[in-house]
Every structure is written in C-alpha cells, then in structure tokens.
Amino acid sequence: MSITVKDVAKKAGVATSTVSRVINNHPSISEETKRKVRKVMDELGYTPNLAARNLGKKTASAIGVVLPPLNTKERLGNPFYLETIETINEEARKFNMSVAVASARDFDTLLANVEQMHRQKQVDGFILTYSDKYDPIITYLIEKKIPFTLIGQPYTQEESIVYVDNDNQLLGKQATDHLIDKGHQRILFITNTTHENLYFERYFGYQKALMMANLPLFPVVSFEETQDYPEFLEVLQETKATALVVIDDLFAVRIIQLAQLLGYKVPDDLSVISFNNSIFTTLTHPYLTSIDIDVASLGSIATQQLMAQLTNQEMHSSLRVVVPHELIQRETVLNKKFK
C-alpha cells in the first residue's frame, strides 16, 4: 500500500494542507513543524510526487525540453540535441530553474508526455528543439496557451510563436557557394529527413546558389528509408556529381563511408560539406568541412526568451531571433581549380 499525504498528516498530528506546505517549503510553516513532518515522511518512506509537490505553487521552477521523435540511429546519436540540452540547462541555472526532458519514438507518445508534464505542473513552459511538419505539440501548446519557444522556424502560425534559428536558407546557399567557388559544378543535396523545416530551408538555399551561378539543379537525394542506400551509386554515376551538401555532420560521416565503400575517395573524387560543426567533424579522416550553427547561442537565447515570457518581462506575440553562423574549412572539399 502506498503512503499518502493523509498518512503523513495523521502520524505527524497536523493538517494535510500543512504537509503540502512543508513539501513546498512554504515560509508560513515553522522550522520546528517542518522538521517534525519531514521526520515522519522519512519514517514512513513517503516520497512526494510531482503533482503533490507543486500543489498550491504557482510555478514548478522547471523548463521542459522537447526532443523530436528519436526513431532513427542518426537521431539518437546526433550530438546537437545533447549539446542543446546542456546549453539550456546551463542558462536555466542562472534563473534557478531546472530542466526536464520529453522524448519518445513517435509523436503520439511525445505529445502524451508533454500533456502529462503540463497537467502535473512539472514544468512552467517548454523549449522545442526542432520544427517538424507533422508535429502536434505546437498546436497543443498554442491551444492551451502554454509558454514556449522554438529552436527552428515554424511551419505555420509564425505570428503566434517566439522562435530562435539560424538563417538556414543562407546556410544552404553559402555551403553550395563554397563548393562552387572551389570549381564544382555538379553538386547534390543529401538528406535523411524531408519533413523538418531546416531541410526545406537548406535545400532552397542550395537551389538558389546553383540558379544564380547558372549551374544544373538536381532533385534532393533522400535516404529516409534503408532501401534508398543501394541507389546511391546509380545516382552518382548518372549525375556525375563531384560534390555533396549533406544535411548534418553525423549523416555526412555515414555518406562519406558509403561513398568510400562504392569506390569514391573523399575529397579526391567527391567533396563533402555539412552543417553543425559537431564532434563528428574531427573523429575520422578526412576532417569534415562544416558550418558552425552556434548551438550554444541557440539554446541560451531560447531559454532567455522563454524566461522573458514566464516573468512577463517581454510579452511578444511573435519574435524571431537569428543566430549567426561560420563556415569551418577542413579536409573534405577539394579545390578543383588547382587540381
């Protein structure tokens, strides 16, 4: 049988409301009463659940960080999310806030987790670390008028959302421009997602760069399903591509390994550029040329903007904050002009 607040109150000889106030460390309760109630809680082995702990409190003093569905190895192993959580946690500490993480393998379960966190007053607001076309969570947060910020550009309702992002279209353009500047003319865009907003923006930027340079455009090469991998050799042979723009570092490492298995040397036969400038850029040779998206700023600014909403410092109906980026040249892009 589980121990309840009533059990603690009965043994301590106090009202249940007093036990709730002790759980919340309310200043109206004397230190002597707090010590007595806490002693009884220890003796009975009572652990307050989050709903009880937050009973009567206006705030939970916590931020919910929502990760996208972790349904692939790339998602599970992508350091972007761990780096983002750490940055948010570091910034949250400055506001005496803790961080709770919501994760799942699909959107239905993820939404259920977010709903539970909100109902039980586990968190005061949320930071979404992604922008996905099929995401039901933004709709839920807006309908319930729950404070949140978004890392990424929303698909809809920009007028209702505070979000922080890179200029992903510019990132895609500059990555492609870099390859063009090095003498590449047949360039492919490679991705493992086609429903996240950063994919659309980076692919638009890729297309813009090629159009402005009067170079051929190619359809996106998507590896969302395992059966897509065997077709890669055929795509390379048909397009005669000499360079690839890849959606992020982790997937770029996988593509480089695949290309090498197919007999292509990087960068001699195939140049590669990607995004995030994560730890994967220097784990294997050749070191990966990548665009640094400044994850630290994305996480800290998202946290600051959420705290501004929670403390009513700045009440924005919508706000976009653009974080600058930097291209880091390493070893995976060959300068064909000097070959």
Rank of each mutant, 00 (worst) to 15 (best):
I3M: 07
T4D: 00
V5G: 06
V5W: 05
K6G: 05
D7K: 05
A9R: 01
K11M: 09
A12K: 01
V14K: 02
A15G: 14
A15Y: 10
S17W: 07
V19H: 01
V19M: 03
S20C: 08
R21P: 04
N24M: 09
S30C: 07
E31V: 08
T33R: 04
K39H: 09
L44T: 00
N49Y: 03
L55Q: 05
G56C: 12
K57I: 05
A62W: 03
G64A: 02
G64T: 03
V65G: 00
V66F: 09
L70C: 08
L70D: 04
L82M: 06
T84S: 00
E86I: 13
E86S: 14
N96P: 06
V101W: 03
A102H: 00
F107G: 02
L110K: 07
E115D: 02
Q116G: 08
Q116R: 12
Q120I: 07
Q120R: 12
K121M: 12
K121L: 10
V123A: 03
V123L: 04
L128Y: 02
P136F: 02
Y140N: 04
I142Y: 09
K144P: 00
K144R: 13
K145S: 13
Q157Y: 08
Q157G: 00
S160Y: 12
Y163W: 09
V164F: 00
V164C: 01
D167H: 04
D167F: 01
N168E: 01
Q169K: 13
L170Y: 11
A175T: 09
A175V: 08
A175F: 06
H178C: 02
G183R: 03
H184L: 04
H184F: 03
Q185T: 10
L188A: 09
F189G: 02
N192K: 10
T194W: 03
H195M: 11
E201Q: 15
R202A: 07
F204N: 14
G205P: 05
Q207E: 12
A209E: 01
L210T: 08
A213K: 05
V220E: 15
V221N: 12
S222Q: 14
F223Q: 11
T226S: 13
Y229F: 15
P230R: 12
P230A: 07
E234C: 09
T239M: 09
K240S: 14
K240L: 14
K240W: 11
L244P: 02
L244I: 11
V246P: 02
L250S: 07
F251E: 01
V253F: 08
R254D: 08
A259S: 15
L261W: 12
L262G: 03
K265H: 09
V266M: 03
V266W: 00
L270M: 15
S271W: 04
F275D: 00
S278W: 12
F280Q: 03
F280Y: 14
L288H: 06
L288E: 05
L288W: 08
D292W: 01
L298H: 00
I301F: 01
A302V: 07
L306V: 08
L310W: 07
T311K: 06
N312A: 13
E314L: 13
M315N: 15
H316T: 11
L319S: 10
V321M: 07
P324M: 06
P324R: 06
E326Y: 12
K339L: 15
